[in-house]
Amino acid sequence: MLIDRYAYGNRLRHTEPALKAGIALTVLTLCLALDHPLTSLWALGWMSLLTVAVARIPAKVFGRILLGESTFLALATVGIAVTFTVATPPEATLWHWRLGSLWIFGTAEELSTALRTVFRALGAVSAMNFLALTTPLVDLVELLRRWHVPGALIDITAMVYRATFLLLDNLNRMRTAQECRLGYATARNSMHSAALLGGNLFMKTFQQGRRFQYALDARGFDGELRVLPAKYQSNPTLAMWGVSGVIAMLGIWRIPV
């Protein structure tokens, strides 16, 4: 998985995860709470800068992920900006389009609401991207442990993470094997192959689960997955960047729009 690879290979890998999560969560909360397009825009730029310039995640990768998310967001907000009606539209439309008796139109107000929503969401999403791209799940799980989140919940998260990779591995292997024997040559046998794949994957995963259990028991598992906590470095530079970014957000929030 792409995100996972960068999470392990960036410049902030060994930085205290509490700091990274702190920055990300503060920016996220401010974006949502202040709901100000300029602060959101600033958050987007600031978080991108931290991710690309400080953590050294390739701009291309960061851009691609953000593009995917923006597309999704844009589609979701089209519903806000566009209105359908069979009655005559109000006077103040920004644009309109007529299909027989159906009117499709948007007002300036709606457009501004839609843009606001997009910016707000993008600011929040870029904060989460920063965290996801710089902090592997192991460290996040470690953080949850320190924050006294119930142990069972943490164990499940860790196992699901591991199981995801095994599942993807199995899936890829089985799909390749099917493809080699022309399992996806036509639309009809594609469906058949996919159904077989699904069934087998389920059985395989089930068996794997049992073997997992044996292996855990063999090493003295007693219901709790205890592992050593990891060691992290403090990073005053990043802390400073984080604090100044947040102060700037609050400053920009005073600008009226």
């Binding site: 292996a215 205890r226 592992v227």
Partner: peptide, 29 residues
Amino acid sequence: QRVAIVFQNPDDQLFSASVAQDISFGPLN
């Protein structure tokens, strides 16, 4: 504690996200 098994497929055995943490599992238990 005294009789240990290394399984046929290491993937069945490695559960932890990091190598060091995986190795620490047995001793902590």
